[in-house]
Each structure stands twice: as structure tokens, then as C-alpha cells.
């Protein structure tokens, strides 16, 4: 009896320790960056020797960070909109179009997410040169849409599978044309999934480095690219300050997704 209690106690202690270590491992880098951003020293010292906001002021005074952030937000928003349109079209075709080859469409749409971005990047670079788009916003937006579209496709597909297609058929029978049926029946039903997919697409674009390295130019510098360039040269805690602000922004986006998902049932697992 006591031996059984002992093993059970040991097992519980062991699992508590494992979960603590795991949590510490996942959170460590984030905590380090936030602490670093408030250091009062020039070099990367840890733990910090004092509290200061000088690196935030330094970042504030450097217009390059603002320009890059604004570029990233614009590119992210355009990527989200384009991904939402193309992702919804492909999701409708695959879940509602009952032909054999729609399975291939699904594989094609998903594929960019599985492939290393570097391969897509070195293929898109000459294509963008041909289209005279290299270095423009459009080039980065199109490139990001290729890799962000699968996320909208999956969230919208899930939403479409969540209700009876007979609803749309009923609307059509009652005289609605294709667009009216979509606008008044489909769209309200998939709204949540579409919004979540759009935020995912924005987040992918906002964090994407590889395609931006090959497709963006000096005037379309994105935030990950600027961070990357800074990391290659001199590393000052300014990067930590910017990174902390980016993390905060990501947290807000994630909160929005959680809020949007709340009305739905617990995720099927």
C-alpha cells in the first residue's frame, strides 16, 4: 500500500518536473529577449546589471525600424487579403466541387507549405525579374501569398466541412445566384475560419525572411530582413527592444485568434 503510494508520488513528482523543465525551455528565449531589452549596458550581458529604456529610445530614433515595420504591415495586410480570396476559392472548389481532380488541387495548394522556402525563393527571383517586379511590394506580396494561402485554405476548408452544403443548394433553389448564395449563406458560415486564416496569413508574411531576402529591395525592406541584417553586423540591445515590441504585437494577434475561435466548440482533437 505504502509502496504503491510511493511510486505514485514519484510518478507525479516526475511528471511535474518534466512539465516544469519543458515550460522553462519553451519560455527561456522569450524571457531572455525581454530582459535584454531593458539592460543598461552596450554589450550582451546576462543577467542585466540595471534597468534602462535607452534601447527603446535608440530604436525609436532610428527611422529604418519604422519604415521596415510599416512595410511589413502593408505587405502582411495585402498578403492576408489575397490569401483569403485565393484560399477561399480553392477551399470551395475542393470541399464543394465533387470532381476527382479536386484532390490534386488540394495537394497543389498545400505543397508550398511543405517545401523549403529557399527553393521557392530561387525559383521566384528570376520569375519576378521577367515580370519586371523584382524589389517591388507586389513581388513580396505575391511570394508571401504562395506560402500563406495554404493556411487560409485549411481553416476555410474546415469551416466549410462544418455545416451542411444543402444550405447553399436551398438558397440556389430559392432563386439566389451563385454570388448571392455565397454572400448571404456561405460567407456568414465561414466568417470565423476565414478571419482566423487571414490572421495566420498576416502572421506568416510578417515573420517571413527567405522570400523577402530574394524578392524585396532596399525600398521594400521588411522587418525580419532588417532584424536579420542587424544580426549579421553589430549586435546591440536595440534588436532586443525591437524584438520585444514584435513579440508583443504577435501576442495581440494570437489573442485575436483565440477570441475569434471562442464561439466555436472546443477544438476537435
Amino acid at each position: 500500500m505504502t509502496a504503491d503510494g510511493l511510486t505514485r508520488g514519484l510518478a507525479r513528482g516526475g511528471s511535474a518536473m518534466l512539465l516544469t523543465l519543458f515550460t522553462a525551455f519553451l519560455l527561456a528565449p522569450i524571457i531572455v529577449v525581454v530582459l535584454m531589452s531593458f539592460t543598461n549596458q552596450l554589450y550582451l550581458t546576462f543577467p542585466p546589471t540595471g534597468f534602462a529604456t535607452r534601447w527603446y529610445k535608440a530604436a525609436w530614433n532610428e527611422t529604418a525600424w519604422f519604415d521596415a515595420s510599416w512595410n511589413s504591415i502593408q505587405i502582411g495586410a495585402a498578403t492576408a487579403v489575397l490569401s483569403m480570396i485565393l484560399g477561399t476559392l480553392s477551399a470551395l472548389a475542393v470541399t464543394r466541387g465533387g470532381t476527382r481532380w479536386t484532390r490534386w488541387v488540394a495537394s497543389l495548394v498545400i505543397a508550398p507549405m511543405m517545401l523549403p522556402h529557399i527553393i521557392i525563393a530561387i525559383g521566384l527571383y528570376p520569375t519576378m525579374l521577367d515580370l519586371k517586379l523584382s524589389g517591388t511590394y507586389i513581388a513580396v506580396i505575391l511570394g508571401h501569398t504562395v506560402v500563406a494561402m495554404p493556411l487560409v485554405f485549411t481553416t476555410v476548408s474546415a469551416a466549410l466541412r462544418g455545416y451542411d452544403p444543402a444550405l447553399e443548394f436551398a438558397a440556389r433553389t430559392l432563386g439566389a445566384d451563385g454570388w448571392q448564395a455565397f454572400r448571404h449563406v456561405t460567407l456568414p458560415m465561414i466568417g470565423g475560419g476565414l478571419a482566423v486564416g487571414g490572421i495566420f496569413a498576416f502572421a506568416v508574411s510578417f515573420d517571413e525572411l527567405m522570400l523577402a531576402l530574394f524578392l524585396a529591395g532596399p525600398r521594400t525592406e521588411t522587418l525580419p530582413r532588417l532584424l536579420w541584417e542587424h544580426l549579421q553586423q553589430t549586435i546591440t540591445p536595440v534588436i532586443a527592444a525591437v524584438a520585444t515590441l514584435v513579440l508583443l504585437f504577435t501576442l495581440v494577434l494570437m489573442g485575436a485568434v483565440l477570441q475569434l475561435r471562442r464561439p466555436e466548440a472546443e477544438p476537435a482533437s
Binding site: 485565393l86 470532381t99 488541387v105 504562395v146
Partner: peptide
């Protein structure tokens, strides 16, 4: 059939991916 109408919607994303994904690869 309703299904065939929906399947046609795939044309736009497929064209997009043909130019900006399949052709580059």
C-alpha cells in the same frame, strides 16, 4: 450540378500557383 460550378472556382488559384509556384520550381 452545383459541384461542377464550385470546381470551376479552382481555376483562379490554380492559375496563380501555376505561374508563381509550379513554373518557378
Amino acid at each position: 450540378t452545383q459541384g461542377r460550378g464550385y470546381a470551376l472556382l479552382a481555376a483562379v488559384p490554380c492559375l496563380f500557383l501555376a505561374v508563381l509556384f509550379v513554373w518557378p520550381l
